[in-house]
């Protein structure tokens, strides 16, 4: 791979070198040098080029909610090891490593809070924990976030960032797709809005369950979103993938997503959508608490 070749399209590729270390970071699109402090203050979006670096779940939450309104829920739900899974190392060892790397106990942070004074239930995935892979604990947290929305009659918003299902929990991981989707069925029946926000990357079992079930589906610019990974597609079909394949822009063009929204505009855009879909429809629900 040439170090200096320009990327053909804007799909973000998360590599170790993309994770900013030190004082400054180079934008992979424009090549401009951005100070990390400036990048963090701008929600990891490069100011001039608009390139979106991955953002940590807690930083996203801090930027999303009205100050001091977020209450985290189910922080004690963590992964177990139901299959006693061992590959090159035991799964519990991997879990410890993920926790250390991400500073999070699980790949999902969820809770309730206010966005422009509107109560919402939110689940945010963090790619740093095991590549955001969905296992029993993350599936449980997402399902609970949906059920809280149902109980409180408030909208649900899920930010996805995931490589897919967590292999080390085998069939239980697969069943989280059914569990989360079934909960969304009940939310839909109650006519409560679900907004799905696809962030880089959203793949596999997460795309094939709650992430594509939004009443409205938004995506961050350049996010990679798909079912099968590029390698699997190439191996199975020998097809050459077109430029920009599986990028948010590609999916907008092919009719899967409603809008591409910059992280910097997300809070306002969510308000605009909820005002139309929700506010005034169930007047009692959002007046309380």
């Amino acid at each position: 791979m040439s170090l200096f070749s320009k990327p053909q399209y804007s799909t973000v590729v998360v590599k170790k070198k993309d994770i900013p270390k030190g004082l400054w970071t180079k934008c992979p699109i424009s090549g401009e040098i951005v100070f990390n402090k400036e990048l963090e203050d701008n929600l990891m979006v490069v100011p001039k080029s608009g390139y979106h670096f991955p953002i940590q779940a807690r930083a996203r939450i801090a930027a999303l909610f009205d100050p001091n309104t977020f209450e985290e829920a189910d922080a004690k739900v963590r992964s177990a090891d139901p299959l006693k899974f061992v590959d090159s190392q035991p799964y519990p060892e991997r879990l410890k490593k993920y926790e250390k790397e991400s500073g999070l106990p699980e790949a999902v942070v969820c809770g309730t809070g206010k966005i422009h004074d509107l109560n919402v239930s939110v689940a945010v995935m963090d790619f740093r924990f095991c590549g955001g892979a969905m296992g029993s604990a993350s599936g449980e947290k997402i399902t609970r976030a949906i059920e809280v929305a149902l109980k409180k009659k408030i909208p649900c918003i899920i930010f996805s960032a995931s490589g897919g299902a967590r292999m080390q929990e085998g069939i239980f991981s697969l069943m989280q797709m059914a569990k989360t989707s079934a909960a969304l069925g009940r939310l839909a029946e109650a006519k409560l809005p679900f907004i799905s926000v696809l962030t880089h990357p959203t793949m596999g079992g997460v795309t094939a369950s709650f992430a594509t079930l939004g009443d409205v589906i938004l995506a961050e610019p350049g996010a990679l979103v798909g079912f099968a990974g590029a390698r699997v597609i190439k191996e199975t079909t020998k097809q050459t993938l077109p430029p920009g394949f599986q990028s948010a822009e590609f999916l907008l063009q092919h009719g899967l997503i409603d809008q591409i929204v910059s992280r910097l505009d997300m809070r306002d855009r969510l308000r605009d959508l909820l005002l139309a879909l929700y506010v005034g429809k169930l007047p009692a629900a959002n007046a309380k608490s």
Binding site: S181, F210, L213, I233
Partner: peptide
Amino acid sequence: FPGIESEERHVSEAIAVNLR
């Protein structure tokens, strides 16, 4: 099926809707 056409017509969405 993991293929270009499958992705272009959103196999993931088709599966997700079925689950729900």
